[in-house]
Nucleic acid binder design. Structure first.
Lengths: 337, 337
DNA sequence: TGACTTTGGTTAAACGTTACACCATTTTTA
DNA sequence: TAAAAATGGTGTAACGTTTAACCAAAGTCA
């Protein structure tokens, strides 16, 4: 109800100068035990909360970090956020999150907002088809930034990602070892490089065995899109016996579609997902997938950002975390249809 | 690289005073077309972005809104956030999100951070067992706040919620009409009032038909917890023929458990969910559930907050949005086991 | 005793805006 | 043609912190 108390009010109440009050509350300077206590008492009595805006303006440091991600409603991404948030919190920072919903103009606005409020740092995954101007925006304002998951085509920013190619290479070899040879890649959108990297991994494994065609199908990262895409695939390419998917949701959808036409995933057609979301294990057909620890990825992300904030002139780095094949029931030796 | 440009730089470049530059950029005051253009040109040339901290300190208005929610990784909640975010964005605000992970101390810290940065307003769902002191914190700092989903026990804040009791009343009647009489309630945690309201709705419907016992089982809001809880329930109370669940995930889990013991949801045992998440439709057993539109709920939330920010002294309001029964395959007349 | 050092503070200048009050000119009005 | 009004600006004081520079009083040392 009453006006928010300021440092001046606290100083007044304690009978000291504003500077002294500030020093006590920040634990800096040389102040006697007695005045220290009286200032603290005054602050508590008045329910004083410092104004972060004023503090950060004056000090030049901002303890609020921004994060902009293409999709918030997803266990995998949420775990990344938790990991980053926990580590940053331990270091005295706060991570506020914006959902870009994979829209470049929305994301652009979000980044601008972060710049306007002079966030201390920025963690983001570029929306699909992010233009170079967006990267320029960040570099001209010198905001410490780290990208993750999707590696930017432009700009020179720190990056944390997944060993995509190595992962799908492993998965594809697993399928080849089981006896599959007609393999398709399902999911993801054309211009997103995470997907290109993953497809490259598949290709590399196939090429090593003298196979050079792989069928690629675009589709969004959702169960329903996966169902639809898989039905199409089965109709148009009935010879395919295994699919590597861009994400678990698509893979779960694909498995369901296979079930719907009277076959069973892991027998007539094998399916491999990516991420190992909690859903993968409890899906109707427990999913073979490529597991990465999103929580650890988030922590790494936070560490990279803090490093960058400490040393703005450091050369940019790229950190990749591995993905591990988890075998469940959707892969197996092919059984003729 | 170079220092962030300030309004002073822009004014200098354009050969006008700081005040004039400010007025041009904000579109206020009376400024000639020519100087207006030259200021705009200077701003563009320098890549000027105003400092929101300074602006909000001076003007007293903050266009950043805070949101703290118990769980971010959930389609339903994410849709709420999208709805609120979209409406607020249209009004020139930015909604930054914090994931409280249902931890009171974490949430407390988050709210304090929002107060420190003097957010313009606050939207939040109180973590389970939120103490009164947290509500005091908000009221003493006079931050316009709206709660949603979970109605606070203390404090006087605006609230937006779901017509929980009416919804489960409808669902229970549906089950009674189908011929069920032994009905259990599955999911949710003991001290969360959303759940109490929903149970009340069930009770009311049962009482109206002269039945007064309902079995209540706690469990967390996840598929795996639902599976486990349902197995227990079937073992301990084999006479139960229908369960109303606190959320779709639990309901999907319960359906799976029923399937696992050789029965079929909607025949031997009926299941009703809550929320109508996208998963409900595509679950192994398409789920009968209570649908609410989270996106619209989010928009309403934003409208209520903006209203409160405009009129801080308005009496507090409570707005409830309805939930509608969507019949799919997990409910039907009971078939003996 | 005089010269340092330490202790415990204070003053005042930033940080980058906004908004109120004011002031020349020029234009309109009676 | 003198008074009033409109036009197009500028000067300056906030907003609430932090921090560098300074200072008086008291303690230490040779």
């Amino acid at each position: 109800m009453t006006k928010k108390p300021t440092l001046a009010n606290v100083a007044n109440q304690a009978g000291v100068s504003i500077a002294t009050a500030s020093q006590v509350l920040r634990g800096t300077g040389r102040i006697s035990e007695t005045t220290r206590n009286s200032v603290k008492a005054a602050a508590k009595k008045l329910n004083y909360v410092p104004d972060a805006r004023a503090a950060s303006m004056r000090s030049g440091a901002n303890h609020e970090i921004g994060l902009s991600i293409h999709k918030i409603a997803n266990r995998f991404n949420a775990e990344i956020i938790s990991g980053a948030s926990d580590l940053l919190e331990d270091e005295g920072y706060l991570l506020s999150v914006l959902d870009a919903r994979d829209d470049v103009v929305r994301q652009r606005k979000q980044l601008e907002a972060f710049i306007r409020s002079s966030r201390g740092g920025l963690i983001w995954v570029p929306a699909a088809d992010t233009p170079e101007s967006t990267f320029d925006l960040l570099s001209t304002h010198g905001l410490p930034s780290v990208t993750f998951l999707r590696r930017p085509e432009f700009g020179e920013l720190d990056h944390v990602g997944i060993e995509n190619a190595a992962a799908t290479f492993t998965a594809t070899n697993h399928l080849l070892d089981l006896g599959h040879s007609k393999i398709a890649y399902l999911g993801g959108e054309a211009n997103v490089d995470v997907r290109s990297e993953r497809i490259d991994g598949c290709r590399k494994a196939l090429n090593a065995r003298g196979i050079d065609d792989i069928h690629i199908v675009d589709c969004q990262d959702s169960r329903s899109a996966g169902i639809e895409a898989m039905h199409d695939l089965m109709k148009q390419h009935p010879d395919v016996t295994a699919v590597v998917c861009n994400g678990d949701m698509v893979a779960i959808g694909a498995s369901l579609a296979i079930g719907q036409v009277g076959m069973r995933p892991g027998r007539e057609i094998s399916v491999v997902g990516f991420d190992d979301t909690p859903d993968a294990k409890y899906a109707t057909y427990p999913l073979t997938t490529l597991a990465v620890s999103p929580y650890e990825l988030g922590r790494k992300l936070a560490r990279v950002l803090l490093e960058r904030m400490r040393e703005p002139d450091m050369p940019t780095s790229t950190t990749l975390v591995p993905a591990k094949l988890v075998e469940r029931e959707t892969t197996g030796a092919p059984v003729s249809k």
